[in-house]
């Protein structure tokens, strides 16, 4: 079953891959993604039968569970022109699906097909819709702060996401991007890595928060909630005054919502 948006525009029909972290920790990131897709003229639907992309199973060596979840996701997103989500890592996992099936399996071709249709949100907006697709909306936005951008590993090295978020951010009024040292180095999250090897992960994220605060940025931006929760959590523990947000929150003009790990915000009470 799918839920349909009212006022369906004429653009492509997009299935939103919510990602489990946006679902559980920061629904506002998924809402921002929906808003951006609609501004780009897409009609957005949220397939009910999605859960997680299966990456925890894949990276733990559990091929069978990975394949089960892959089938479920492939079925859930059947028929959409595009599948878009706010994470290079989770969409990157969708791109690994062909690897988990035998080429003789009927899901193999469907996995290839899903791969060809699925995009991380900034890459979708910039590479598929076009660089100036959102220029009318973005130029109305104001964010008078210095920001720095963390390139998440899967987004950067698997999905080739580097310029897309930066080019989109540049169109926002007042924003100043200051690159940090080693922006492309892993923050130490790594899914289960951060709890399996907490001390090593801690060293990696401590390096990262040093680089972040060295820029003097007001806000840290990124495209993956896993990395952002990790870095925001460390910034908070260290008492550093840097806010952390998913890039779509800026692009969708949703900065009235408290940043990650900041003061109280209860979405449940707002509904």
């Amino acid at each position: 079953m799918v839920t349909y948006m009212p006022n369906t525009p004429s653009g492509p029909r997009v299935g939103l891959f919510v990602t489990c972290l946006a679902d559980m920790f920061r629904p506002s990131v998924a809402f921002a993604t929906v808003k951006l897709l609609e501004q780009a003229g897409c009609s957005v639907e949220v397939p009910e039968r999605q859960t997680c992309c299966g990456q925890p199973a894949f990276n733990s060596g559990d091929r069978k569970t990975t394949a089960d979840i892959a089938r479920q996701t492939i079925d859930a997103f059947d028929g959409y022109e595009y599948v878009v989500g706010p994470s290079g890592s989770c969409i990157g996992m969708l791109h690994y699906y062909p690897e988990v099936f035998d080429p003789a399996d009927s899901y193999y071709q469907r996995a290839l097909d899903l791969k060809s249709r699925s995009f991380e949100i900034t890459s979708f907006l910039f590479d598929v819709i076009g660089a100036d697709a959102l220029q009318d909306q973005l130029k109305l936005l104001q964010f008078n702060h210095k920001v720095t951008y963390h390139d998440s590993c899967s987004g950067l090295r698997q999905m080739g996401i580097k310029q897309q978020p930066r080019q989109l951010l540049q169109q926002v009024q007042g924003i100043e991007l200051e690159e940090m040292e080693e922006a492309e180095t892993c923050c130490g999250f790594g899914g289960t890595f951060c709890v399996k090897y907490p001390e090593i992960s801690n060293r990696m994220v401590s390096n990262k928060t040093d680089y972040i605060s060295n820029t003097g940025a007001h806000t840290l931006l990124g495209g993956d909630l896993g990395c952002l929760l990790n870095m925001a959590g460390k910034l908070k523990r260290e008492g550093k005054q840097v806010e952390a947000r998913h890039v779509v929150e800026i692009l969708a003009g949703m900065t009235d919502i408290p940043a990650i790990g900041e003061a109280d915000y209860d979405l449940a009470q707002k509904l």
Binding site: P27, N202, A232, K234, R237, L267, L271
Partner: peptide
């Protein structure tokens, strides 16, 4: 090692 940022209360 780090704080856990709070969720927004519902999914």
């Amino acid at each position: 090692w780090r704080d856990m940022p709070a969720p927004q209360g519902t999914t």
